[in-house]
Design a protein around this nucleic acid. Structure first.
Lengths: 226, 226
DNA sequence: GCTGGACAAGACTGATCGTTCTCCCTCATG
DNA sequence: CATGAGGGAGAACGATCAGTCTTGTCCAGC
């Protein structure tokens, strides 16, 4: 807010070209090398922007980090992960599983950089720090996406299910950082088992496991299976 | 190796008192705040050791980091995690599950500091870096412990099983860093399902779930149930 | 045409980084 | 007694850190 009123021209282009270049440079450097390992000098140099210009747009390095995390959510969470998952399947259960197919390609890319939200959050152990909180909030955003899919799939305790699913995703991300390129496949197998035994109240998917007495569903979730 | 021959006295005490204080200080600071956030000055100060003394024992900060990781394995992996797991149960399957009970207490401790191996590995994204490699190696050590339990439990593909189990552990560790204090319980529930449907060739544990057609075990694993 | 904001370029601050060097003391062993 | 290793205290190194300030140029709006 504040840079709202503009002339007729320069409508659709970013608020400021300098700011855009700064966030781009920050994105490339922070996502690859982490926060503490990248100095503002490196961002200045890569963005080709003057030092003072940076401090006019972002009062401090932490402010720039927050802008980086926001951009990361736009590009990675929304434009990449969620878009790709939705594109690959329509059934919400298939979409949940598709997460790990998307991850599989990610883990096998030569320049796998890991999850910036996890990295940044662990880099700032202080839970009260604004950067830690922002990173954790974006992780929660991913979880909300999962929770929505779980709800659409008619899964009873969608929130808990999403948290379990997310644990598998995060574990796989760390395993991939260790070098396990098959981490997504492993996690997907575990996830499939989790989905299979999930308490789905409604939603005739034609399950495989024969008997298994139907657990008393604690509450009828908002069944919405578009 | 190298500091082997000593006088008659000073037998059981550490190689050097100064070195011991340095590693202790490094342990407390690195495990809580990370590597990059802790300068050598802080370690000098906390250990009460002279600057030059530190550089006589450790040629560089990275060397001290490696010593810290080694100590972390001694104290955290061996003396705490593995000991506690073995203490809580005798059946290998129960021991596998006990991992998450031990984690549960850990996650609820007020000064939860996370897994240093994960933190340090993510802090050093370069897979060729000695510190990254060491951290990854200690993570592999944890996995080998799991693999041993899986083998004792008669699980067919023990290595893959251990990797899946470890993914759950690491995902829970990250979730706990986000603030989810119930992460261990969630991961345990998923793990229990994983264990239930595991290809265990042999080993009559007297399972709970009634029907569930016994999956055709692909291969008879080396049945060794001590 | 003037004014003021955005920006480039870069000097500069004080602090901190990892590392090296110097000087002095202690103490066990020859 | 002499020697030398181990250690303490601290100055000093050059590099880098995040952040400030100064100067000059451009350009749009009045």
């Amino acid at each position: 807010m504040g840079a709202a009123k503009l002339g007729a021209e320069e409508r659709l282009q970013p608020v400021s070209e300098a700011r855009e270049r700064l966030v781009n440079a920050a994105y490339e450097l922070f996502s690859r090398y982490g926060i503490q390992a990248v100095g503002v000098d490196a961002i200045i140099e890569r963005s080709g922007v003057a030092r003072q210009t940076m401090y006019r747009h972002f009062g401090s390095k932490d402010d720039l980090v927050l802008a980086f995390l926001e951009r990361r959510e736009q590009l990675w969470t929304r434009r990449w992960l969620e878009t790709e998952v939705v594109r690959r399947a329509t059934d919400p259960r298939d979409r949940l599983l598709a997460v790990f197919d998307v991850f599989d390609g990610w883990f096998r890319s030569s320049d796998y950089e890991g999850c910036s939200f996890i990295n940044v959050m662990l880099e700032h152990p202080d839970a009260d720090h604004a950067v830690h909180r922002a990173a954790a909030a974006y992780l929660a955003g991913i979880r909300h996406f999962l929770e929505g899919l779980a709800r659409q799939a008619g899964i009873a305790d969608a929130e808990n299910f999403a948290r379990e699913w997310h644990i598998l995703m995060k574990g796989a991300i760390v395993a991939a950082a260790e070098g396990d390129q098959d981490a997504a496949l492993r996690a997907k197998r575990v996830a499939a088992g989790l989905l299979e035994q999930a308490d789905t109240s409604g939603e005739a998917t034609g399950g495989t496991s024969a008997s298994a007495p139907p657990r008393a569903s604690k509450r009828r979730a908002t069944r919405r299976l578009r």
